[in-house]
Design a protein around this nucleic acid. Structure first.
Length: 344
DNA sequence: CAAACGTGGTC
DNA sequence: TGACCAAGTTT
């Protein structure tokens, strides 16, 4: 009886998705492996993020910092600015920590084993397995959202996530081959991203359809089950937009930890049900008619915008000359505040 | 272990 | 409009 993994690899040989950080299966068969730096960068960017969103950022980072030594030597603010808009900013902070640790502790060479990678900042179970298998062909067990879904359907597992994760991981481990490990990891994820998709899976085209338990039971589309989430609350705040009389903008680098940590933005109040006003300058304020709205993972935010022009020294933040102000270096929530200024 | 942590696309 | 979803990690 043919191996499930072999069926998947045969499918991947024909249907592998094209990505700039990848080496196609035909080339991998001749012994060519991808640049581990490019693979690691892609995997961190791909955490909870679509391939479509990652492509441009990956190209930008590889252009600005072609090697891990270049990235390790970069300024924090430049890296955070380049990451702006991609989200989950702790990833960018940990990306730098990881690059510097590899340069300082590993001579600039990527660790090749799952366990060694796991000890680095921003590298958890998924990323350690992905990098060790894709960049070094180690037989690590890669379990991401795609693999969870494929395993849940293949074995018709109805227990809800995240409680069922250990069971799905064990099923994935039983299927992981000892050879072509990198291709296999990418094959399962490609299958989950295309054929075995969350909604309307195209089972008729699936290389595993004849041995899929959920396909037989007619339950594929409703798996994996997930425990229901709470509905997202709305929080409120004030964003302060201060211009100096020479046109300079008052901006503030947010604290390392917490929401939008380490990112540049306009000074704001805290974000809560009833925020305390916290203007960064003692001056007269004008309130805009339009409210900037933005949704984060776990709450909606409605920001009232107050503006002023003053040369009074602020109590927090720093002025950035108009010529040096780049709105694309702001996270999306702050870009919406900026965009509101000209449309209000 | 549950919660925090972004964003853009889709239904 | 709103809820769900995407190659998770950290605390």
């Amino acid at each position: 009886m043919r191996d499930l993994a072999q069926d998947l690899l045969d499918w991947y040989d024909v249907h592998a998705r094209d990505m700039p950080w990848r080496v196609p299966p035909a080339d991998r068969k001749t012994g060519v492996l991808p640049d581990p730096y490019a693979v690691w960068l892609s995997e961190v960017m791909l955490q909870q993020t679509t391939v479509a969103a990652v492509r441009a950022y990956h190209a930008k980072f590889m252009g600005l910092w072609p090697t891990i030594a270049d990235l390790a030597a970069a300024e924090d603010a430049d890296v955070m600015a380049a990451w702006a808009g991609l989200g989950y900013y702790a990833r960018a902070r940990n990306l730098l920590k990881c690059a510097r640790a590899i340069v300082a502790d590993h001579g600039g060479d990527f660790p090749q084993t799952n366990d060694a990678l796991l000890s680095l900042p921003g590298i958890g179970p998924y990323t350690a397995a992905a990098v060790s298998s894709i960049a070094f062909d180690q037989p690590s067990v890669v379990v991401d959202g795609n693999v969870e879904r494929v395993m849940a359907r293949l074995h018709d597992v109805h227990d809800p996530l995240p409680a069922s994760k250990p069971k799905l991981t064990a099923l994935a481990a039983a299927l992981t081959p000892q050879t072509r490990s990198g291709d296999y990891a990418q094959a399962v994820m490609d299958l989950g991203a295309t054929i075995c998709s969350p909604r309307n899976p195209t089972c008729a085209l699936c290389p595993l359809r004849l041995r899929c338990a959920a396909r037989a039971a007619g339950t594929a589309a409703e798996l994996p089950k997930k425990t229901p989430k709470k509905k997202t609350p709305t929080r409120f705040g004030i964003a302060y937009v201060v211009r100096r009389t020479d046109g300079a903008w008052l901006l503030e680098t947010r604290p390392e930890n917490g929401l939008l940590g380490g990112m540049l933005g306009f000074p704001t109040t805290d974000w809560s049900d009833t925020p305390d006003p916290a203007p960064p300058v003692d001056t007269d304020w004008q309130t805009l008619n339009t409210i900037a709205k933005h949704t984060f993972t776990h709450f909606h935010l409605e920001l009232t915008i107050q503006t002023s022009t003053t040369d009074v020294a602020p109590t927090r933040g720093h002025f950035v000359l108009a010529a040096d102000f780049d709105p694309t270096a702001l996270p999306t929530a702050m870009r919406k505040v900026y965009a509101t200024l000209r449309h209000d």
